[in-house]
Amino acid sequence: MRRVAALLLMMAATPAAGAGYAILGDEIPAPLEGAVGDAARGRAIVADRAVGLCVLCHAGPFPEVRFQGDLAPPLDGAGSRWSEGQLRLRLVEPQRFTPGTIMPSYYRREGFERVAAGYSGKPILSAAQIEDVVAYLSSLKDVK
């Protein structure tokens, strides 16, 4: 029932973008584009500053990453604070939680100013990558 409602909402919300999702409350309950996340792949994305970019701002439980930012709360325990759906919305529209946040919208593909040619029309991470990251974050139960 929820799935069907989400699907309808998705189609209604962003017909043109081809990358729709439905927000219910403070969550995106359904996986993006039906992708199945993998926590190990997600960890690699998060720990790679050129792919996930997360460590530019966040620290987390990946001691092999030498340089970790302190512009944002540590990712330790993210999975104990937030549900999968909440984490998904965090990555897709972080400004819903914190207006004016510096955290980028990972699934957004338009509306940027002066975006560099190589990135234009593309989100920072694909739906599949975001699902991997959600799976990894959900596995982070221990608070530092």
Partner: peptide, 20 residues
């Protein structure tokens, strides 16, 4: 840019903090 950040967000509001 794709990261949607202004100069001021880093150099005014977060100077002294660590980017990686």
């Amino acid at each position: 840019g794709q990261l949607d950040l202004s100069c001021a967000q880093c150099h005014e509001q977060r100077a002294g903090q660590r980017l990686a």
